[in-house]
Design a protein around this nucleic acid. Structure first.
Lengths: 204, 204
DNA sequence: TCTAAAACCAACCCACGGGTCGGAATTCTC
DNA sequence: GAGAATTCCGACCCGTGGGTTGGTTTTAGA
C-alpha cells in the first residue's frame, strides 16, 4: 500500500520539477538530465516511472497544466452572478499573479501551444483539449450573461470567447519582457472598454 | 565585384531556407544540417558565411523577419486617411494571408518571441525591437484617429495599441490548428466591435 | 593564362541527450 | 529476518548537432 504512495510521490516530484523547467526553458531546450539533476535522481529512476520524455510531458499536460488552467481560468468564472464581472475579476487576478511572479515566463498553456503548434500532432491534441475546455467555459459564461440581460443578445458568444482568449494569450506573452504591471493595467482598461461595447445599453 | 554579389546571394539563400525551417519547426528543433541539406550545401559553406547558428539567426531576424513585419503590419497603416479603417483592413489582410497559407505555423514574430521569452537576452533584444516598431506605429496611427475626430480623445492610445497587438498575436496562435477561416471571421467581428466602442459617437 | 583570393567540400571532433541494462539498495510481506 | 518485489543507481550505447580544419574547386582580375 505504501509502495504505491511512494511511487506516486516520486513521479509527482519529477513532474513538478519537469513542468517548472519546461515552462522556464522550453521543452526542446530542457533535457531529462536537467530535471534529474535538480532532484538528485538518476536516469534509471526516470525511465522506471515513465516510458519516454514525450510520455512524461503528456502526463504533465494532462495533470498539472490542465489543473493549473482549470483553477485559475475556468473554475473562477463558474459562478452564477454577473458573468462579465466574473471574467474581469478572473483575468485581473490571473494577470496579477503573473505580475508578482518573479521569473514569469508567460502563460504556460500558451507557451507550450506555441512550441508545438503544427509540429507535433499528439501533444497538440492534449493541449487543444485544455484550450477547448476553457473556450466552452467562456462561451457558456457569456451566454449566461445574455440570459441575465447583461450582455447584448445579438453578439455571438463564441466570437466573444475567442476574442477574450486571443487577447489574454497575447498579453501574457507580452508581459514577460515588458513592465508587466503597466501592461496589465493597460490591458484591463481596454478589456473593460470591450465589455462595455457588448453590454446591454442601460436606458437610464 | 561579382564576388560580393555571389556571396550575398548564397547568404540570402541560406537565410531564406533557414527562416522557413525555423518558422516551421522552431529554432531549437532545427539543425544547421537540416538547412544545408535543403540547399545541397555543406557545413563549410555555412561557417564560411556565418559565425555561428545564433549569429545566423540574429541576422535573419534583423533582415527578413523585420522586413516581413514591416511590409505586412506597419507599412499598410501608414496612410493618412481613416486610421481605424486602415488598421482593420491591415489585420484582415494579414489574417487572410494566413488562412490561405497552406502550412501556416502562426505569426513569425510571435512564435520566436515565445520561444525565447525570458530565456535569451540577446535574441529577445532584436525581437523586441521589431515589436516596439510595430507598437510605435500603431500608437501614432491611433493618435491620428483622434486628431481626425474618429477616435474618442479620452482613450489611451498606448493601451489601445497594446490591446490590438495582444489580440492579434493570440488569434494567430489559435488559427494554426483550428479552422483559420472561421476564426478569422469571428475575430474580425469582435475587433470591429471593439473599435466601435472607442470611436467618437456620431450624433446624427 | 596564370595566380591569388573567395567559395565551398567533407571528414573529423566532441559534448550532449534520449534511452538501455545489469545490478545494488530499499521496502514490503510473511 | 528471509525472500521477493519495488525502486533506484550509474555506467554504457549511439545518434545528433554545433563547430573546426585542411584541402579542393571556382572565380576575379591582370
Amino acid at each position: 500500500m505504501k509502495k504505491e504512495l511512494k511511487r506516486l510521490a516520486t513521479m509527482n516530484r519529477m513532474q513538478k520539477a519537469g513542468l517548472a523547467l519546461f515552462y522556464k526553458k522550453g521543452y526542446f531546450n530542457t533535457s531529462v538530465d536537467d530535471i534529474l539533476k535538480e532532484l538528485g535522481l538518476s536516469k534509471g529512476a526516470f525511465y522506471y516511472h515513465f516510458e519516454s520524455k514525450e510520455d512524461f510531458f503528456v502526463k504533465i499536460i494532462d495533470e498539472l497544466v490542465a489543473h493549473k488552467v482549470y483553477s485559475s481560468l475556468i473554475e473562477p468564472i463558474e459562478g452564477h452572478d454577473n458573468p462579465v464581472d466574473l471574467i474581469m475579476r478572473c483575468f485581473e487576478e490571473a494577470l496579477e499573479t503573473a505580475v508578482h511572479n518573479e521569473m514569469d515566463s508567460g502563460f504556460v498553456l500558451s507557451n507550450f501551444i506555441n512550441e508545438f503548434n503544427g509540429k507535433h500532432e499528439r501533444i497538440m491534441g492534449h493541449l487543444n483539449e485544455i484550450l477547448r475546455n476553457w473556450e466552452v467555459n467562456l462561451v457558456s459564461t457569456v451566454q449566461r450573461g445574455k440570459f441575465n440581460g447583461q450582455i447584448d443578445r445579438h453578439v455571438d458568444s463564441e466570437s466573444v470567447a475567442l476574442f477574450l482568449m486571443s487577447s489574454y494569450m497575447g498579453i501574457r506573452t507580452l508581459m514577460v519582457e515588458t513592465a508587466p504591471s503597466a501592461l496589465k493595467y493597460r490591458y484591463m482598461t481596454q478589456l473593460r472598454q470591450f465589455f462595455k461595447s457588448i453590454e446591454v445599453k442601460q436606458h437610464t
